[in-house]
């Protein structure tokens, strides 16, 4: 049996037919062809699939597409401005060498934006704890942590 699902993805209304067991990340990658969101572990541990659902970071490999019915989704593709200008978090990852192979990066950036939203001015220890659900095997996290702290400060300065 197939089910109709509709949601807003990166500001655009989308709909599709899915099986009940279709994961949200499958819907995003295979139906919508937005392949920026990665699947690393498929077991809720690595965080490569982190996206925002109604503005909150979640792991899209451990959600059914049907659980996102009617929700507003933001993926890495929707983060930069329409003119291509990078989001402050993306720019900070670039500035601080926050990525190497790039596989974990979409999830790291989306989690970074979520950390900045929830914990403005978070210190290094807090940021490291908040990254418990995001695994990077290249960088040793140093550049990632610096990028998130830097972007967080800039995002809140811009808001004030």
């Amino acid at each position: 049996m197939e089910y109709n699902v509709q949601m807003t993805v990166n500001g655009k209304a989308v709909s599709g037919k899915v099986e009940a067991r279709t994961l949200l990340v499958q819907f995003i990658r295979e139906h919508l062809r937005l392949t920026g969101t990665h699947v690393g572990c498929d077991t809720t541990q690595c965080g490569c699939c982190v996206i925002h659902v109604d503005g909150v970071a979640m792991k899209s490999c451990t959600m059914l597409a049907l659980q996102a019915d009617g929700k507003s989704i933001l993926t890495i593709e929707g983060l930069a401005a329409a003119d291509g200008a990078l989001h402050p978090m993306q720019q900070a990852f670039r500035d601080h060498h926050g990525l190497q192979c790039g596989f974990c990066t979409p999830g790291m950036v989306m989690m970074g934006v979520d950390i900045a939203r929830r914990l403005p001015g978070a210190d290094e220890k807090t940021v490291r704890h908040q990254l418990e659900g995001n695994i990077c095997r290249c960088t040793g996290y140093q550049g990632i942590v610096e990028a998130i702290m830097d972007a967080s400060a800039k995002m809140h300065a811009a808001k004030a």
């Binding site: 809720t44 909150v56 979640m58 659900g133």
Partner: peptide, 9 residues
């Protein structure tokens, strides 16, 4: 519990 993304769900 878990990690931030898990706690959100």
């Amino acid at each position: 519990i878990g990690d931030p993304a898990v706690r959100h769900r």
